[in-house]
């Protein structure tokens, strides 16, 4: 057995061991109780007791049967191509905005943290625009771009851009100055210091920023799609609201929650892959 294979087996054994441990703890059962309680209360309040305000809401069985129906009343279920089109278009927009904000934000943040003059001149401007909520850009972005897709992507990219830049900057500033001094004493040039000290040193903060950014992208995307757009999950929610197709609102919300969760988990996993040294340090602590 090669060392690589051995590592893989031991990792798999660790996963299995942890899962068995988890099954023996009360946690999975409490979790199921929590889910069951939530779903039961939803069902009872809306469909059985028909409480005053709750009875207009879409109920649990209505939503589930609409979602799983081959021939849904309101045209959206797991069997209709439209549902996947909404999902795909939203995902595509988020990926574009996330890529844009990361490609601009990470280099800018590293530069602001590394180069004092850049920070002195650019940071005040950055702080002037940061408090403006991303969604108040809606009207300007609609007017600025002629292409119908561009305003939504621009809008989705604003909030993640600020979060990514700020975190990358803080990441560089968090690096112990002695590492940089030691590297220059040993004869490293600027580029080597950047590649071997600054970049890996800032990486934990950069990935914290990216994870926050992923959440923020979905947050602004929904608003962007609600106000302008003709596909996407945010649009599905507001369109179903206006057409009184209430079960679709919940389908849209749950789908957004699922994809949002998966995308954040993917960013976190990529970060852990790139920062194995940190994962080990945290496991030992």
């Amino acid at each position: 057995m090669t060392a690589q294979e051995e590592l893989r087996t031991s990792r798999w054994a660790l996963v299995r061991y942890r899962f068995a441990l988890w099954l023996r703890s009360p946690r999975p059962y409490l979790m199921l109780i929590g889910f069951a309680l939530f779903l039961l209360l939803w069902h009872l309040a809306v469909e059985v007791w028909r409480l005053p305000r709750f009875k207009d809401m879409p109920g649990l069985t209505t939503v589930v049967s609409a979602w799983l129906s081959r021939n849904p009343t309101f045209d959206v279920s797991i069997f209709t191509p439209d549902y996947y089109k909404h999902i795909w278009i939203s995902t595509e927009r988020v990926l574009k905005a996330f890529a844009l904000s990361s490609l601009l934000g990470i280099p800018l943040g590293l530069m602001l943290g590394w180069w004092v003059h850049a920070k002195r001149f650019l940071f005040p401007l950055f702080e002037l625009f940061r408090p403006i909520p991303p969604l108040s850009w809606v009207p300007l972005s609609i007017v600025l771009f002629t292409d119908p897709e561009a305003p939504i992507i621009f809008l989705t990219a604003i909030a993640p851009f600020f979060a990514t830049t700020l975190n990358a900057m803080l990441g560089v500033e968090s690096i112990d100055r002695n590492y940089i001094r030691a590297a220059s004493c040993l004869g490293a040039n600027q580029w080597q210091i950047f590649a071997h000290v600054i970049l890996p040193g800032a990486l934990p903060y950069v990935f914290t920023g990216l994870e926050i950014s992923m959440g923020l992208s979905w947050f602004s995307l929904v608003a962007g799609e609600m106000l302008s757009g003709n596909y996407g999950l945010g649009y599905l929610i507001i369109f179903s609201f206006m057409n009184i197709a209430y079960p679709n609102i919940v389908i849209g919300m749950v789908t957004l929650g699922l994809i949002g969760y998966v995308s954040s988990a993917l960013v976190r996993m990529t970060g852990n892959q790139l920062m194995q040294w940190r994962v080990r340090a945290l496991a030992l602590a």
Partner: peptide
């Protein structure tokens, strides 16, 4: 993970 604004309707 459901964005707050998705709750508006």
């Amino acid at each position: 993970p459901i964005p707050p604004l998705a709750w508006v309707p």
